[in-house]
């Protein structure tokens, strides 16, 4: 049957017929459609929809988390731009890393990132998430976020003001319109 005896790897379990089915299926999966759409002007319309509906994952991690909450609230109100918080990663488009990434939190953060559906973007909010900030030399923090996540927007500040976060979103919108964001460039 083409099955390798005793091997536990994933490829070993795939039978030839399954491979054919897989090949057939990939032809009609959404990714193929997306690849096709990328070549057409329709992509501009899709990008318009995407950029105007950037739902972010509620995940306050530190000082920046408080500013993130304030950005969604009356004074600043990201809902004006169609940017609303979502609690489940399945429905979020943007992950805002709003604070210190520690060695203990990293696996959970990766998991959250993997749970989000494509296309997705990362915004690094605050110095801690960009370079460790005041805690760069600590024994428990991770400072090279770039190594783990395809970050599109860096917002410096400790913490950045809500206006800055909104500006970050606007920059991300510009990048999506210009097809320069890392998801569309395939640079992930």
């Amino acid at each position: 049957m083409g099955e390798v005896e005793g091997a536990g790897s994933e490829t070993a379990k795939v039978r030839p017929i399954q491979k054919i089915i897989d090949a057939h299926v990939t032809f009609t999966t959404t990714s193929a459609i997306h690849d096709f759409l990328k070549k057409t002007p329709l992509q501009d319309l899709i990008n318009w929809g995407r950029k105007n509906s950037l739902w972010f994952l509620t995940q306050p991690m530190g000082c920046c988390g408080i500013e993130m909450i304030c950005t969604g609230a009356p004074h600043y109100d990201t809902d004006r731009f169609g940017i609303i918080p979502r609690c489940s990663p399945r429905q979020a488009d943007v992950m805002i890393i709003s604070g210190y990434i520690t060695k203990k939190y990293m696996p959970a953060l990766k998991l959250l990132w993997d749970q989000m559906p494509e296309p997705k973007w990362v915004i690094c909010m605050g110095d801690c998430s960009i370079s460790g900030g005041p805690f760069w030399e600590s024994y428990s923090t991770i400072i090279n976020t770039e190594k783990y996540f395809p970050v599109d927007i860096y917002i410096p500040g400790c913490p950045p003001r809500p206006e800055q976060l909104i500006q970050g979103f606007v920059e991300l919108q510009k990048k999506i319109t210009a097809k320069q964001d890392r998801t569309q460039k395939g640079d992930t």
Partner: peptide, 11 residues
């Protein structure tokens, strides 16, 4: 706890 333990006391 400890998901955002930054080691402030050491710093």
């Amino acid at each position: 706890m400890g998901f955002i333990h930054k080691g402030i006391e050491k710093i």
